[in-house]
Design a protein around this nucleic acid. Structure first.
Lengths: 232, 232
DNA sequence: CAGATCTCGATTGTCGACAATAGTATGGCC
DNA sequence: GGCCATACTATTGTCGACAATCGAGATCTG
């Protein structure tokens, strides 16, 4: 056999299209919802969406079914599909589920590769810090999401990642629907930094309890219930 | 206003049809897969399935999209839909995700209502014991699933429950594809009883570690890797 | 006879049209 | 004037048909 031009494993030219159309549609709509184009409670009209995306209603409906299965949309028969509402109860449930997944992710990465994970987390933290310094709350929020995404991805679990992807979108919806103050942003950066430090130190329980505190703070903010304020 | 016949909240007569057709289709197919009608790796043919269920391919595809989103089916473009394979890696990942969810459920129920949860678990345990006594491994497996379902439902979280529903189906597929020995059945009953006891004692960490051990045992069985055998 | 190429069948992917339903606006009645 | 019944409209739910793609078997060539 004549020698190949290069090692086949190195030129990895990826397939042109691999994922199904409904999957891509779901991704698009998910992003749009996360961006705030469709606020919580808004109805999604099939005909218009299909027109905008340049597809028929068939594939569109299949993609929307996926988002409904994820819980991002709620379907009312013969009425339509609506973006999930952010009731306090819903928010608490969202963060409960997120905590379940991320606690597991922490346990795995601490066991597997705490250093590498902390290293992967650091650039995200730097970006978050930068965004906080220039009062770019949107940027802080995006980095926040990315932090948790990186954390879960590092666990290397397909299922954890899939569940978390849904939760991250819901989290984005929360953040979108929420203004932020400078002290909140700084607190958030601080919390994430501590979690990363605990992971680097391979202290799973500490990282998990810091995570829980972080989540509790976020829920308190979102549900507008005053958390225990420090005296003074 | 004349007094109502009875308290409206007590006569809860549910709507005739409320859930969407794709949702019902997904439930049917999910059950069929759990029952073993479609073994792991089998292809699902749209036309035939649609004919059997008495619906068109449109709604059927929408329902199947849900199962694909759940991870129970895998889609290959222009090839078809296949039931997920039970590779060792897959099994490990499945149980990792299950453990994440159920640890959280335990934490919640221990905090909330350990007694009530233990009481709700007891009949399932009794049934499991009975099944084990008469060597009804299928019955043991069903009770096993039910145990975890009750546990998660008791946490009262919509998201946890939804994620777990998927995982329970995958677990059913595992169990379906697995023979059992008498000593395994007895061990399993024992493990579940201890978890329930720990929950009744409101000892969250103990219950969680027992759960972890239980899951590890199951994975060891399923992946056919010998777990550390007690000497003797 | 081995290998590659071509053709055919089956299955999936996509679309447009029709039917059914819920909400809305209008008209009539008390 | 207020309330109920009715017709209408917009949207969703469903279906059948057509197009695109892949795999397998047959065919041809060296």
């Amino acid at each position: 056999m004549p020698p190949a031009v290069t090692d086949p494993s190195s030129l990895t030219l990826q397939p042109v299209v691999q994922q199904s159309t409904p999957m891509m549609i779901a991704a698009r709509v998910r992003t749009a919802i996360a961006r705030g184009d469709f606020p919580p409670g808004a109805q999604l009209y099939e005909a218009e969406l299909a027109r905008q995306l340049g597809v028929s209603r068939g594939p569109l409906r299949e993609g929307l079914q996926r988002l409904t299965q994820e819980g991002l949309l709620v379907s009312i028969r013969h009425r339509g599909l609506f973006v999930v509402e952010l009731t306090p109860e819903n928010v608490r449930d969202m963060y409960l589920a997120r905590e379940a997944i991320e606690r597991c992710a922490i346990a795995v990465v601490v066991e597997r590769d705490p250093q590498g994970t902390a290293d992967a987390l650091q650039p995200v933290l730097d970006e978050m810090t930068l965004a906080a310094d220039r009062s770019d709350y949107r940027g802080v929020a995006e980095a926040d999401i990315r932090f948790h995404e990186v954390l879960v991805d590092r666990a290397g679990s397909e299922r954890l990642a899939r569940v978390h992807a849904t939760q991250a979108t819901e989290a984005r919806v929360c953040i979108q629907a929420l203004g932020q103050s400078p002290q909140d942003a700084l607190l958030r950066v601080e919390e994430h930094q501590r979690i990363a430090d605990a992971i680097r130190a391979a202290d799973g329980p500490l990282a998990q309890s810091l995570l829980a505190q972080h989540m509790a703070d976020a829920v308190a903010d979102l549900t507008q219930q005053p958390r225990e304020a420090p005296a003074g």
